[in-house]
Design a protein around this nucleic acid. Structure first.
Lengths: 214, 214
DNA sequence: CGCTTCTTTGAGCGGACTCAAAAGCAGTGG
DNA sequence: CCACTGCTTTTGAGTCCGCTCAAAGAAGCG
């Protein structure tokens, strides 16, 4: 649960940077390394030859990922969304470190479990939520990434949000405009979000919005 | 990679059965056990108070799951789809066994990795595929579960398929009818599928259907 | 200042949904 | 054996949400 040890160890490894749009690795590449993000945001992308694209997740400072988690190949392409500072450690080196620090193994499986839990949430969102619920949920998640702030930046483009939510950029834009007109958010600039009514936004975000008392 | 050792160990533990519809555990329950399926099919369900439901995965004979993979609570409810024979082992017992058999830990992370990879596939399917592509992909996956057979049973109801693919039962039914009319499958009974043209079905299943030569 | 890229807005369409009913099937009891 | 009941699946008709196509702002950059 404490990524600091991971980061401390990772600090003994490659310190790297990447510019927006640069790939850290590609889907299908042999999964030779693990990564932690020091600063910035990464997207995990699955793309098709016909242009259809799906973002299976966003990763933020402190997040630990890569290595295929036991698989021999990466499951998706990792691309920098913002200017990025990150660490890289080879799978074999990390395996050695795991023997010295057994807690590392537990942390790794905890990370995998978190990604699995997030993936299930994502599946429910894609399968059963409306565009408005999707965008509201995304804004709340973005707020959490910013430390529950009521004002924060969306580091990614509308196209990234659309590919994450299974929508088009037009629908994302229209929905944001609608939420603005409803008074639950404000958009001083396209990238800057201000939550005006967190409770209403939360109610809009989930199907299970009704009372939970039995 | 070899679940047989897991099963052999699990055979020393609780041998249980369940009838269709019975829950093995519920979403949110403390994740005290791991499970392996001996015979039958299980669905992993996320449900909302308003009736919306999403099936995040199906599990088959030999599959290993549960325990929250490091989390303290189960991420979804596990329900028997068919009459079920399965094994249960407590997380603590399995941790003890892990110390005797280090390969177990690797197998567990491999299982988690497989679920993660499957989850990413599922995300892409839900986010970017049409109803026809979804149903075609589901039929191909079902064929794989049946050992690449051209004829096999769908153990689950249309409602399960719909909740897995993010569709309604009507759309699932209509799409199956359409595939039948196209001549790529036959449905002797609603539960029994016969693949008449695997290549066409594969072409219908994926967006990346065009040629891959660069 | 002109170019490119991103975002927003508009108009119209269509695929999947909703609502509704019929058809098929399994079990049950007369 | 057959009517009756309940459940699942299929089929039909019509609607709407989100998509497509198109164009007009904004914003960044050389």
């Amino acid at each position: 649960m404490d990524p600091h040890e991971l980061i401390r160890i990772a600090e003994k490894t490659d310190q790297l940077e990447a510019l927006p749009g640069q790939a850290l690795f590609y889907e299908g590449d042999p999964a030779r390394s693990f990564f932690t993000i020091r600063k910035g945001v990464v997207r995990l992308v699955r793309a098709f030859p016909d242009g259809r694209r799906s973002i299976v997740g966003f990763l933020h400072g402190g997040d630990f990922f890569g290595g295929g988690f036991g698989r021999s190949a990466y499951a998706a392409t990792a691309e920098a969304v913002t200017p990025l500072e990150y660490c890289r450690i080879s799978v074999s080196d990390l395996q050695l470190l795991t023997k010295e620090h057994p807690s590392l193994a537990r942390q790794m499986s905890a990370m995998a479990a978190d990604r699995l839990y997030a993936a299930d949430d994502h599946i429910v969102l894609l399968a059963r939520k409306t565009a408005q619920e999707k965008v509201a949920a995304f804004l709340l998640a973005s707020s959490e990434w910013a430390g529950q702030a009521d004002q924060f930046d969306l580091p990614m483009a509308r196209s990234d949000i659309a590919d994450y939510l299974g929508l088009t950029i037009e629908t994302v834009s229209r929905t944001l405009t609608k939420l603005t007109e409803m008074g639950v958010i404000a958009l001083p600039t396209p990238q800057h979000v201000s939550l005006l009514n967190r409770l209403d936004l939360r109610a809009l975000a989930r199907p299970e919005a009704e009372s939970l008392d039995g």
